[in-house]
């Protein structure tokens, strides 16, 4: 990156939308969060020009760490081309004038909702998660005063009760997303609603992982190369989802698959949820059972919303 890039943004706004004092406050919060892996640090969340639940926490974190030379990637459920991802990408193009990309490898900052990219991240990258509910114990213990004490004293028996309930009711741990993890052997943490398939990617990841909850006004973090363990029982160990099918388009057997309905006659296929990963494989010549099917390709080549 050149030091004198000709960055242009809408000058009606401060760089990256937030004022400098707010960004400093959020950066201090982020530093504290990195210093205490998994601990939820409260911050003075601002009103953002999008509704709660659409990523206000993630956007504030991204706005505070992004610089003019950074390249941004935004994904929603793994896809770069969904409305939320496109809108947030445009938002930062406008208020920060930054480059954007769909390629995981090229991004400096990746803001995500509900997925971790399939391509491994590298040192220097920042993964920003949008978090609706930062408190993993909330459904079981409604009192914030009590959950804070539980974190303070590492009293996490209650979390196992939730997994126990799963096994008692379904015969196995049926929690498939927001699957709770212990960070650095100390703090219980909600990984945000990512599928448990992605949980193992959080451990020992070279990238910085930041979590922003806008409505709840909490930020937490996993520093690079940190131990992240998914909770389980000795006789019901943690397992990720697997599929009998491979990706219908690129033939991948090890990626997280979404089920897509193709028509109203029962036609369906399983495709990679990570669009960048899928396209990259197809560009390299991999193909799946429907790789040449026009209806299937219509999904693969759909244009980003205008």
């Amino acid at each position: 990156m050149s030091a004198v890039s000709a960055v242009q943004w809408d000058e009606a706004y401060n760089f990256a939308y937030l004022d400098e004092q707010t960004k400093r406050m959020i950066r201090r919060t982020i530093l504290k969060a990195i210093a205490i892996p998994g601990y939820q640090v409260p911050f003075g969340g601002r009103e953002m020009p999008l509704a709660y639940g659409w990523g206000t926490g993630g956007v504030q974190v991204t706005a505070s760490v992004i610089g003019p030379d950074d390249t941004l990637k935004v994904i929603d459920q793994g896809a770069d081309d969904t409305t939320n991802a496109v809108s947030i990408r445009r938002f930062f193009e406008r208020v920060a004038g930054v480059e954007t990309t769909e390629t995981t490898e090229d991004a400096d900052i990746i803001q995500t909702r509900h997925r971790i990219p399939e391509f491994p991240l590298r040192e220097g990258q920042v993964l920003v998660y949008q978090v609706p509910q930062p408190e993993p114990l909330r459904k079981l213990e409604p009192r914030e005063t009590e959950t804070r004490k539980m974190h303070g004293y590492a009293e996490y028996g209650l979390m196992s009760v939730r997994l126990y309930e799963d096994i008692a009711r379904y015969g196995h741990i049926a929690t498939t997303y927001s699957y709770p993890v212990m960070v650095n052997g100390r703090y219980l943490m909600s990984p945000s609603p990512i599928p448990k398939f992605d949980n193992p990617k959080m451990e020992n990841n070279p990238a910085i992982q930041l979590f922003g909850a806008g409505r709840e006004k909490r930020i937490y973090a996993i520093p690079p190369y940190t131990q992240v363990k998914s909770l389980d029982f000795d006789d019901h160990p943690f397992k990720v989802q697997t599929w009998k099918e491979c990706c219908a388009l690129c033939g991948a057997k090890s990626s997280y698959l979404d089920e897509v309905i193709l028509d109203d006659r029962g036609g369906r296929m399983f495709v990679c949820s990570d669009t960048n990963f899928c396209e990259d494989r197809r560009a390299k010549g991999h193909t799946g059972p429907l790789g040449a099917d026009p209806a299937a390709l219509a999904f693969a080549h759909k244009e980003p919303a205008q």
């Binding site: 009293e155 028996g157 209650l158 126990y164």
Partner: peptide, 24 residues
Amino acid sequence: EVSAGGNVGERLMAIGARHYGDIR
């Protein structure tokens, strides 16, 4: 909101029990 078994097992899990079969 927690089953009878979960209610009884909570204290065991709080002191570190992590074997579902034993807790049950």
